[in-house]
C-alpha cells in the first residue's frame, strides 16, 4: 500500500465510522416506530444491522479486496450456519403444530397461558358395573 493509497484509506475509514454512528442512531429511532407488524419491524431493524455489518467486514476487515481462500472459508461457514439455523427452525415449525392441541387463554395480566384440553370420555365410566 503506497502512502497516497493509505491517505485515501484513512478518509474511507473515518467516513465508515460516521456512517456506522448514523446507522446506529437510525436503528434506535426505527425501533420506536410502529411498522404495524412484527415482520416489518424485524426486517427493517435487521436490514440496517446487515448494512452496518457489511461496512465493518468490507472496510475495516478489508473483505472487499481479500484473497479468494478467505471467501471460500466464509462461504463454507455460511453453508454450515444455514444448516445450523434450518434444522432447529424446521423442528420448530413441526413442533408448532402440536401447540394447537392445547387450549390458549390470555390472563388478566396479558400473559398467554396454555392448558391441556380436558378429555371427554362420552360418559363411559370404567370404574362401575
Amino acid at each position: 500500500m503506497s502512502d497516497h493509497n493509505i491517505e485515501s484509506h484513512i478518509k474511507v475509514y473515518w467516513n465508515v465510522f460516521f456512517a456506522l454512528i448514523a446507522f446506529t442512531i437510525l436503528t434506535v429511532a426505527v425501533s420506536y416506530y410502529d411498522f404495524g407488524s412484527v415482520f416489518w419491524t424485524l426486517f427493517v431493524g435487521l436490514s440496517i444491522a446487515c448494512i452496518k455489518g457489511y461496512a465493518v467486514a468490507g472496510y475495516f476487515m478489508h473483505l472487499n479486496d481479500e484473497s479468494k481462500p478467505i471467501y471460500y472459508i466464509l462461504v463454507l461457514a455460511a453453508v454450515f450456519l444455514f444448516v445450523l439455523m434450518s434444522i432447529p427452525m424446521s423442528w420448530r415449525s413441526s413442533a408448532g403444530s402440536h401447540s394447537l392441541e392445547y387450549e390458549q387463554y390470555v390472563g388478566e395480566d396479558g400473559y398467554v397461558i396454555y392448558k391441556e384440553p380436558e378429555h371427554h370420555d362420552n360418559g363411559h365410566d370404567d370404574g362401575g358395573h
Partner: peptide, 15 residues
C-alpha cells in the same frame, strides 16, 4: 467482536 455486537444490540435490546 464489533460485528457480533452490531447484531446483538438490535436483536436483544430493540426488536
Amino acid at each position: 467482536v464489533d460485528l457480533v455486537w452490531i447484531f446483538l444490540f438490535p436483536s436483544i435490546y430493540l426488536l
